[in-house]
Design a protein around this nucleic acid. Structure first.
Length: 422
RNA sequence: GUGGGCGUAGCUCAAUCGGUUAGAGCGUCUGGUUGUGGCCCAGAAGGCUGGGGGUUCAAGUCCCCUCGCUCACCCCA
């Protein structure tokens, strides 16, 4: 049998309540802050991702779902949320709106990677981007949005880690300092880190190898290389987070996996920090727009994996409320009653009553079994007898007595019964 | 891309040393005398034992390959 592609998932109805809780909670937090929804295409030109993400990143080197379309263009399934939003901002002239432009999205992300716990080839992210304003307050606002979303979901055990990577004019000096530090220690680095010494020295700091981690302890810190504006920005951000009472810890080894970040980077990580444990993360990317050939547009944002938020939700014991159960169940007992049953069901639904309809004429026993299992509070029976006399039988499923009402009064009487009036 | 574990019904699991027609619980469907639910009872449907090859008189069981799932590495969310 044909099965779903590796690393993808069918989302069955039983997970819908939790999923909806996450998306609605996030949406509400966004709207409380004036963030507006945006969606971008599932496919983008491949260069959008390769030029922004960075050539040396794993994402660009081996994780993109790229293909040629029939016209010969190279397209890529969205591998990351930020670059498409920046592209859309520029392409649609959103710089003509009051700045910053605050946007949010809920979207699928595709990365060709080996699946494991909390990691999929297609996963989903909630994300937000604030474009057009370089102020540290915008960084704080964006972090507050994500933090508040987690809190509103009952997730209170994530650790916020923070760092600043500085600006492009100071990055080379820091990069060189790292190279100078690690080069004499090269024989103690693993092969991957040795390669990064030339390709992407910052990412050595990210290594989980214990031996490399030890070496990182003594490595130069990005904060010591910040220029004056970046320094001021970072200090201001920390002050704002403190006044918002959002706890955080500076992590000198936090560098993030995408190259376009400058200044602020942050991650929310769970306490049982496994290896791929980031629940959400982001940062500032003031030079991203230029990478795709646009004018300068400062920006800051984040992405958070919904599947991982769901894991945190479970860990913290948050449960979503069950979906609405049908209130009434309409049971045709004779073939001639099916049309009537469906018509009555429609009238009830138009009146706002959730109704499940039995589709096949069968025994009362069978219908009532279904009605019970459907959680409906009331069964509405229509058989040959009822048709003949222009009535329907209403049977409350809580054991109360069955009553007969005229067909033309049915909707009103049913609403009364469901409302609790006799 | 690398390594470990696991693949039997929709789900959770049995099946002795390699031995007859692969079973159970749950779930699903049907029925339990006239048109009345839950509980209970009965019955039915549902399996190429992931797939392919090999060893053997005989394979769910042993061997090889492959696919899938899963966990970890790498990396990300």
């Amino acid at each position: 049998m044909i099965q779903r592609p590796r690393g993808t998932a069918d989302r069955l109805p039983d997970v819908a309540p939790a999923w909806r809780l996450v998306s609605e909670t996030f949406q509400r937090q966004c709207e409380l802050r004036g963030f507006a929804p945006i969606s971008t295409p599932t496919i983008e030109r491949t260069e959008l991702f390769t030029r922004t993400t960075g050539d040396a990143t794993d994402l660009a080197q081996k994780e993109m779902y790229s293909f040629q379309d029939r016209g010969g263009d190279s397209l890529t399934l969205r591998s990351e949320g930020t670059a498409p939003v920046v592209r859309a901002y520029v392409q649609n002239g959103l710089h003509n709106l009051p700045q910053p432009v605050k946007l949010y999205y809920l979207t699928s992300i595709f990365r060709y990677d080996r699946p494991q716990a909390g990691r999929y080839r297609e996963h989903h992210q909630i994300g937000a981007e604030a474009l057009g304003d370089p102020s540290p307050a915008v960084d704080a606002e964006v972090i507050d949005l994500l933090w508040s979303t987690y809190r509103a979901l009952g997730i209170d055990d994530l650790r916020l880690e923070l760092n600043s990577l500085g600006d492009p004019d100071t990055r080379p000096a820091y990069r060189q300092a790292l190279v100078d530090y690690f080069t004499p220690l090269a024989d103690r680095l693993d092969s991957e880190s040795r390669e990064r010494l030339t390709s992407n020295p910052l990412r050595i700091l990210d290594s989980k190898s214990p031996a490399v981690a030890d070496l990182c302890e003594g490595a130069p810190r990005s904060l010591d290389f910040l220029g004056e504006p970046a320094r001021t920005h970072f200090d201001a951000l920390q002050g704002l987070l403190q006044s918002l009472e959002i706890p955080f810890a500076v992590n000198h080894r936090l560098v993030r996996g995408l190259d376009y970040y400058n200044r602020t980077v942050f991650e929310f990580v769970p306490p049982d920090a496994g290896s791929q444990s980031t629940v959400g993360g982001g940062g500032r990317y003031d030079y991203l727009a230029e990478l795709i050939g646009a004018n300068h547009v400062p920006g800051v944002g984040f992405g958070s994996g919904i599947e991982r938020v769901l894991l945190s939700l479970e860990r913290c014991g948050t449960t979503a409320r069950a979906p609405r159960a049908p209130e009434a169940y309409v049971a045709p007992l004779a073939d001639a009653a099916v049309a009537d049953a469906m018509r009555l069901a429609r009238q009830l639904r138009q009146a706002g009553v959730a109704v499940e309809c039995g589709f096949r004429a069968t025994s009362p026993r069978s219908h009532l079994r279904r009605a019970s299992r459907s959680q409906a509070r009331l069964a509405i029976l229509i058989g040959a007898r009822e048709l003949e006399r222009g009535v329907v039988a209403l049977k409350p499923l809580n054991g109360a007595a069955q009553v007969e009402v005229r067909h033309c009064d049915a909707v009103r009487r049913i609403q009364d019964i469901l409302a609790g009036d006799p």
